[in-house]
Structures are given as structure tokens and as C-alpha cells.
Design a protein around this nucleic acid. Structure first.
Length: 276
DNA sequence: AATGAGGACAACCGCGGTGTT
DNA sequence: TAACACCGCGGTTGTCCTCAT
């Protein structure tokens, strides 16, 4: 059965979203919720196709999204799930709350694939590459596996350690975090969440877990499972926090405003007008 | 300081699945 | 049952940014 292309209509805009478009989409969805995407652009006053709106919302504007790099726990989970499911990015993403399939797919293609190759692992088959990685050449398949896959050093020593990187940029999502405005998208902090799903990977028998466990034990960010606030909960708390000033007035010392912060402001205005 | 290469990621494209008429 | 419409998924592309030269 033939299908009309979704976005070839004359006059529909393509390409990067502007802050104004983000604002329109977010304010519409916050006010009306998600209905049929085809109607969203018209109702929201956007010259975009519904598909584009859905993608923008799903991958960037959704309030429950985590921001920033995947934690090592999350990376391990992705690898394990990829081993089981292949390129079922949406299924993989469903095991990582706050992460999108697109984000995971991009991270896989740009980071994890390289790491696995450096470790001598075929990112497609998850088996040792042939020929085996350079010296010292293992004598037995088991040793090869252990050397290539069981060595966390191989996983991260040739790059800036994700954990240490997160040490620098991640703020724990506790009350202190709530009171601290996120200075930049990458530092929104939620990125290092140790979700129950991701932390459960530590019990997996997969060699990836064994490989990475030492480096991740005692989450480098100091965050304990369950400490992460649900965004809606955070939003309920914002008015009592210093963050509110940033959300309401906009970042004082940042020229660029993260669309996420824009969203927060819109959401607060729309849902708690009595506060202003 | 200029510039080219490579990396990272947002966004688009096309297809398949599913619900409705 | 067929035709259609919509949504979601996975692959790919385009653009911006960073870094090395």
C-alpha cells in the first residue's frame, strides 16, 4: 500500500529547531498533552510535520529525559542489551529510563563501538575480533576473552575515564542539586543516574559486567539508587529552591538558554501561575 | 590566526506494524 | 479483506564543534 511522504508538503520547515519553535511545541504539549502528532503542528502553530514534532519532543524536550553522557553503568547496560537484542534501540532505551533510542544509538555509534574495537571485540557479534588484538597474544581462547573483555583498563584507560569525567561535571540529584542551577546542558546532572535497571546489570553474568565492575563500584558520582528525583517531583519542588530564580528569570550569566530550561519556565508559568 | 579533518549529535528519511474504516 | 492513516523504529545524513596542523 502506498504511503504519502510525511514531510514533503510545501511550506513545511525542516532542519534545526529554533528556541521559538521549541517554546511553541512545549507550551502546547504541556497545556494539552500528547494527542495525535499529525494535529500537533497545526494546533501549536508550527510549520513542521507531526513526525518532526514527535521526534523533537521525544529526543530533546521531554521533561523526563536525562542529559549528558551515559554513565559507565548505563554503557554496560547498553552493551549487554545490545548483545542480547542487537540494534533494537528502542527496546534498549526502554531499559534506561530517561534515555532515548536516538541518544543510545548515537552513543553506540560514536563511543561504544570504538571502545569495543579497541578491546578487540566485534561490536556486531560481541565476540573477539579476528585476528586477536596485539600483544601479548593470549594462549587460549579463555585467556583471550579474559584479556580482551575482562580488563576494565582496556575499556577506559585510553580515554578520559567516564567516571572521572562525571566526577567533575555531575551534581548529585539531592537537595543540594535541586538548589543548584545547572550551568550547562551536559551538567544537568541527571546523566549519571544509577537506575534500578542499569544497576541490575552488575549482577549479570556477562563478561562486560565483570570487566567494568571495579571501575564503577561505588558509583563515582556518589549517587545511590533511588536518589534521583523524578522530574515532575523536581518541578513540584522548584518554587522552593534557588533554581527557581534561574528557571523564571532565565540564566543570568549564560547567553544561551538550554531549551530544557525554557521548558521548565514554560511549565512553571503554565501550571503554577499563582506563583507569579 | 586560518583552515581542514574528524567527531558528536540533532534531525530527517523511509519502512514496517497496527488500528480504523 | 483491502485501503488508508498514523505512529514508531532503525538507518542515514547534515551541521556544528573541537582540535590538530
Amino acid at each position: 500500500m502506498g504511503r504519502q511522504p510525511c514531510c514533503d508538503k510545501v511550506g513545511l520547515k525542516k532542519g534545526p529547531w529554533t528556541a521559538e519553535e521549541d517554546q511553541k511545541l512545549v507550551s502546547f504539549l504541556v497545556a494539552n498533552g500528547q494527542c495525535c502528532w499529525r494535529a500537533v503542528p497545526k494546533l501549536a502553530g508550527l510549520l513542521r510535520c507531526g513526525k518532526s514534532c514527535r521526534l523533537r519532543w521525544t529526543n530533546y524536550l521531554r521533561p523526563d529525559l536525562k542529559r549528558g553522557l551515559l554513565s559507565e553503568d548505563e554503557e554496560r547496560t547498553v552493551i549487554e542489551l545490545h548483545e542480547q537484542m542487537g540494534n533494537r534501540w528502542s527496546k534498549i532505551a526502554s531499559h534506561l529510563p530517561g534515555r532515548t533510542d536516538n541518544e543510545i544509538k548515537n552513543h553506540w555509534n560514536t563511543h561504544i563501538k570504538k571502545k569495543l574495537r579497541k578491546m578487540g571485540i566485534d561490536p556486531v557479534t560481541h565476540k573477539p575480533l579476528q585476528p586477536a588484538p596485539p600483544p601479548p597474544p593470549p594462549q587460549h581462547p579463555e585467556e583471550e576473552k579474559a584479556a580482551g573483555l575482562g580488563n576494565i583498563e582496556a575499556f577506559c584507560s585510553d580515554e578520559v575515564s567516564m567516571a572521572r569525567l562525571l566526577d567533575d561535571i555531575v551534581l548529585p540529584c539531592d537537595d543540594e542539586f535541586i538548589g543548584t542551577p545547572p550551568p550547562a546542558p551536559a551538567a544537568c546532572g541527571i546523566s549519571a543516574a544509577s537506575s534500578p535497571e542499569s544497576s541490575s546489570s552488575s549482577t549479570s553474568s556477562s563478561f562486560y559486567s565483570a570487566a567494568a565492575a571495579p571501575a564503577s563500584s561505588g558509583d563515582s558520582s556518589g549517587i545511590v539508587d533511588g536518589e534521583w528525583h523524578d522530574l515532575s517531583q523536581m518541578m513540584m519542588e522548584w518554587p522552593e529552591t534557588m533554581w527557581l530564580d534561574d528557571v523564571v528569570t532565565g540564566p543570568a550569566s549564560w547567553e544561551f538558554e538550554d531549551p530544557f530550561v525554557t521548558y521548565q519556565r514554560i511549565a512553571l508559568f503554565d501550571h503554577q501561575p499563582e506563583l507569579f
